[in-house]
């Protein structure tokens, strides 16, 4: 594989940038020679919509994923899943979506997950919708929903990253209770999805 491009979208505070780092650092650990993350900081993080672009492979030249070269679309929230879906121009991209809405404060718009999924269904090679927030909550706390989503992507074999090396990276990135929670969520998600 020459390059792997993961678009991670969500809401400020949900761990979009952390997810991006987890993937890129694991890729480097696994021997991919290049990895880049395109991040957005500042204003965009105050509960706003957030996007991070993770790229790894043998030759990665620039930090923004070309619209026609996406490999995986990871969405931590369904409105955001819909918002950035136009960025995926190619039809051989995989997707894992968290079945979870976070309504913008004061927004009057109501939407069902069916509406979102119907819209996105034909966009991807394969699209999986999982209850990442729910599973993270069951494993300890909903804050680890991002880790559940990554675990799901590996369980579906959408990512060329190993479970063990992802957990190794988590050990570098998190400490104490936080680390314990994330590892627990990761294992729990894998076992839940394995039994499906």
């Amino acid at each position: 594989m020459k390059e792997y491009n993961v678009l991670v979208v969500g809401v400020g505070g949900m761990g979009v940038l952390t997810t991006a780092q987890l993937l890129a650092r694991t890729a480097l650990k696994q021997g991919f020679s290049k990895a880049l993350i395109g991040e957005i900081h500042g204003m965009a993080q105050r509960g706003g919509s957030v996007i991070a672009e993770v790229r790894f492979g043998e030759e990665i030249l620039s930090p923004i994923i070309p619209f026609h070269r996406n490999s995986l679309y990871l969405a931590l929230e369904l409105f955001e899943a819909l918002r950035y879906s136009y960025r995926v121009l190619n039809n051989d991209c995989y997707a894992v979506l968290n079945n979870f809405f976070l309504k913008p404060p004061l927004s009057k718009i109501e939407m069902s997950s069916e509406t979102v999924l119907k819209y996105l269904r034909n966009k991807f090679e394969r699209m999986e919708v999982i209850d990442a927030t729910k599973m993270a909550k069951e494993a300890g706390s909903s804050v680890s929903a991002n880790v559940a989503l990554v675990a799901a992507a590996t369980a579906f074999k959408f990512l060329p990253l190993g479970e063990d090396s992802l957990k190794e990276t988590m050990k570098e990135m998190f400490k104490g209770e936080n680390l314990e929670l994330n590892i627990k969520t990761f294992d729990y998600t894998i076992s839940r999805l394995g039994k499906r």
Binding site: A44, R46, G47, G48, S49, F79, L82, P104, I109
Partner: peptide, 14 residues
Amino acid sequence: EVRSIVPNRPPVLC
């Protein structure tokens, strides 16, 4: 199309 159906999510006061 997406913009017409998805609610805006501007940054907000925390």
